[in-house]
Design a protein around this nucleic acid. Structure first.
Lengths: 376, 376
DNA sequence: ATGAAAGCGCTAACAT
DNA sequence: ATGTTAGCGCTTTCAT
């Protein structure tokens, strides 16, 4: 910058003005400066700028180092063909954020957070942006707590967390509503009564919220309400979904003493909901598991949806591509990203210490073939 | 940082060391510093760091402000459901870059470049990263020229450009190879002889390379070789693909005096390739146009692939979802992103002034229903 | 193992 | 409309 100033016979302040506020510099001067800059190959340093102006013009996103091993494997195998089928949440959120950020003149810095520690990616991101969004449980609570004292942070998907963080803005998705509606559909519209719910770890707030929605629908539909999911998996992966399905069906076969899975509909063999009976519907807390279940069922020769209905949750691209296409609940990930940016921008626009905002985005049920509904 | 230093009774240099090189500080001191940092809510400033150390730990990507109006409209309409179907190139590249960047300890800054001018997004990105990738023809050549004097830039997809930029690293995709192989498949494996090629603007190097591949295949297959595409469109959009299809068929109908499109296969009505004859295959320079063609053909009651074969190029997600699924050439976008990062990292790792590298990534033909091949 | 001091390249008052 | 002058918060020699 000094060189540019010298070469064009002005002061560095003027050079600065040319870039920040061109109109405040006389036309001829501006031309001269720009010319000099060109000749010297001058590129303004964002760092110096940020340092001096205390703002970066960049928003950030931290997301988990997604690694469902199953997905990774399949993704690798199908890489050539189905690349896009494995588009992840984070991709959609990124897209939403980038678009919204651009509208507001921001760029987007993205990083999957690895370890914790002083030199975590989060810290890195936090130090380079004006504000950022975090996918729930991506970042150690304590780090977030510290960081959020310095700049706006919005928490995405996943409920308001560990008390400590209740001063953060926060956007979640209507997990319970979605699962309730989906379950209602199965009970009322399809007349199913023997349902099982396969959940995730107790520590997954999303999975728990979904289970709650399921319970509510059962209650409303006059079905017995279980205290706990019929089965839980740890990681909610495809492999676990497959194992869960096998476990459930094996158990049913043993207890009913009858080898195969039910062949007709609603023959009402047993006591009602619960183990020991072949279920009419297997409700999974996410799509990954449901896809795994589809594999297991196909392997066992159980037809979906004729013999058993299967549903997922999330609306990942893959859910549309599997056969039968998976009935599921779609999360508006892109919108999530956009809303996140809006929230951040608002905070940055002065409303720094307004009450924490909490949004809940509506979801929609996608009725597809795996519950017996049409193609769409 | 000064506060942290004071509070923990050390100098700022030591605080700095704690974050950059923890092992060079005595355990007890380190603990003390970290504790103070925690209490004060200290977050290191990436800007100051970058300024002092002359490196950011961030790589960048500039991509076009994609806006095929058609796609946008459809995307908006289908937003709720098919979000992911409209995943774009840039999304895949982003994903590839992010993953690779992470492996190397970098974060990724992304921005769609809008206008030019001193305050373009490019300049902004350039000022905040150690190196970056640009999607071809996203950024004014001159800007790139200047910027690339300061930091490594790699150009993605699209051939080595306007002379000026031949000092840039550069990764392209085997457009000609892909189109040649696809065309060969139609000629040799399907025995088609009356082909038409619908290209893009002369100024699109990709479209031109594809046409070249097409010509080569025609020559190899003993078909007449045209000097120019049978038709060109400006933007290669769906709407244009639709119009092109209508134009082509109307013209054929007129000249042959026979209303409908050919009903059988290879009845060899006319002179060979060329206007005035209903083509056996319509080869589009990209998927967008081919999808538009599918619409037009359906509207006109022309069956694909029975009456006419249609092919695209790119392998966008949508190409799989349309019916019939589109035979096309898949570009390895994700790999493109990964390679870009590798190139940048290599440059940053000392090899600053090695010869410009030029990679060409192989593509693969996806034989799907629209050419009469199986589901896949 | 720690401290002192000199910038890194820019912006933002404040002058002129 | 342009110039002067302090920093912005850190890294980095070089000492100790």
């Amino acid at each position: 910058m000094y060189d540019v100033a010298e070469r064009s016979g002005v002061s560095i302040a003027t050079v600065s003005r040319v870039y920040r506020n061109p109109d405040s510099v006389r036309e001829t001067t501006r031309e001269r400066v720009l010319a000099a800059a060109r000749e010297l190959g001058y590129v303004p340093s964002g760092n110096a700028r940020g340092l001096a102006s205390r703002s970066t013009g960049v928003l950030g996103l931290c997301f988990p180092d997604y690694s469902d091993p199953d997905t990774e494997i399949e993704a690798a195998a199908a890489d050539a063909d189905d690349d896009h089928a494995f588009m992840l949440y984070s991709d959609q959120i990124i897209r939403g954020m980038e678009r919204a950020a651009r509208r507001h003149g921001y760029a987007l810095l993205i990083a999957a957070s690895l370890k914790g520690g002083p030199e975590s990616q989060v810290a890195k991101v936090a130090g380079r942006v004006d504000g950022f969004a975090v996918l729930a449980r991506t970042v150690p609570t304590e780090d977030l707590d510290i960081i959020s004292r310095r700049l706006p942070v919005v928490m995405l998907a996943g409920p308001r967390e560990n008390d400590e963080l209740d001063h953060l803005d926060h956007i979640e998705v209507a997990n319970a509503d979605g699962q309730r509606e989906l379950t209602r559909h199965l009970i009322e519209d399809h007349g199913l009564r023997r349902l099982v719910f396969i959940g995730g770890a107790k520590s997954s707030p999303d999975a728990e919220a979904r289970f709650r929605g399921y319970q509510e629908a059962c209650r409303a539909g006059g079905l017995p309400v279980r205290e706990e999911p019929d089965l839980r998996t740890e990681m909610m992966t495809q492999a676990e979904g497959e194992r869960a399905t096998d476990a459930l069906l094996d158990q049913a076969a043993e207890e009913s003493g009858d080898g195969g899975p039910g062949s007709g509909t609603g023959s009402g063999t047993g006591s009602g909901t619960g183990s020991g009976t072949v279920p009419e519907a297997m409700i999974f807390a996410n799509d990954q598991m449901a896809v795994g279940a589809l594999h297991a069922l196909e392997r066992r020769g159980v037809r979906v949806p004729d013999d058993v209905v299967v549903t997922g949750f999330d609306g990942i691209p893959l859910s549309r591509l599997v056969r039968p296409a998976l009935t599921t609940v779609r999360q508006p990930m892109r919108q999530l990203g956009e809303e996140a940016v809006e929230l951040l921008v608002r905070r940055l626009g002065g409303e720094r210490d307004r009450e924490p905002v909490s949004l809940m985005l509506p979801v929609t049920v996608a009725r597809r073939a795996s519950c017996g509904c049409g193609e769409r």
